[in-house]
């Protein structure tokens, strides 16, 4: 772990993006967790912002704007903003999302629409208190930061148990949540991936709900269309209850 002195010493290089990737990662990690102000770093970032201002602006060609707008028209945004705010979790034990008896198993119902809160995710990564629950390709928070930073896709999960995110990074998928609702000691959250009408596949569990929970899923997302969490008394092969958290993995 880098200390404050070293971070301050590297402030200028960090501000200019002139340090090795590993050093940059460690500086960023330190800044996200350190209680000190690090005014040196702030000062250097401000000064570094001046450097490109030293260049005289250069007018782009007339065609560039049109080319850009044509590209934008065909480029989806990552994690488009939800039309309505995410529903706040209920201050009680999680209840199944679908209380009415479905005629089909819940995993064969249409997934709930994803609502996206990647900004909140960034905040969780940066300032959350960490409870890394692992089975465990990810060994530490550094790896989590790398995974979030290099995420190929982030899917918001929400429900009566709280909110979380499924993060796809390469062939790895991670579930992250902050402050899931507490469960009785004899229960746990079980994580599932569902591919269409196929039976859910168990991909992990969470039992400690304090702080930020982070679980590497036991398989990649593959063609799964839905991620879900149920409350179980022990790890099971098929869900025995309705989901308390759901993410749509489709577009």
């Amino acid at each position: 772990m880098m200390n404050c002195t070293t971070v301050n010493e590297l402030a200028a290089a960090y501000a200019l993006g002139a340090i090795e990737a590993d050093e940059e990662r460690r500086v960023a990690e330190h800044l996200s967790t350190c209680g000190q102000q690090h005014s040196d770093v702030r000062s250097m970032i401000e000064a570094a912002a001046l450097v490109p201002v030293s260049l005289e602006p250069v007018a782009p060609s007339a065609a560039l704007r049109g080319r850009l707008m044509a590209t934008i028209a065909q480029t989806p945004q990552e994690n488009a903003v939800p039309a309505t705010p995410a529903q706040a979790p209920q201050p009680r034990a999680p209840q199944p999302i679908r209380s009415a008896e479905p005629r089909r198993p819940w995993w064969q119902l249409a997934p709930l629409p994803a609502s996206l809160a990647a900004v909140a995710l960034a905040a969780v990564v940066g300032i959350g208190s960490w409870n890394i629950s692992l089975n465990q390709q990810l060994g530490d928070r550094d790896a989590a930061l790398r995974a979030v930073a290099s995420a190929d896709a982030i899917f918001a999960a929400q429900g009566t148990a709280g909110a979380g995110w499924v993060i796809e990074s390469g062939e790895q998928a991670i579930f992250m949540a902050e402050d899931l609702l507490d469960l009785p000691a004899d229960q746990l959250y079980q994580l599932w991936l569902i591919d269409g009408d196929n039976a859910p596949v168990a991909v992990g569990t969470v039992s400690d709900t304090d702080g930020v929970a982070l679980v590497t899923l036991e398989r990649d997302l593959g063609s799964a269309t839905t991620f879900a969490i149920t409350v179980e008394s022990e790890r099971v092969d098929a869900p025995t209850s309705e989901p308390v958290l759901v993410a749509s993995l489709g577009t």
Binding site: G17, A28, R42, I45, A48, A49, A122, S150
Partner: peptide, 12 residues
């Protein structure tokens, strides 16, 4: 992708 993400931390 990583560089862009980290850049967000240096833009304040």
């Amino acid at each position: 992708e990583v560089a862009d993400e980290r850049s967000l931390l240096r833009t304040g």
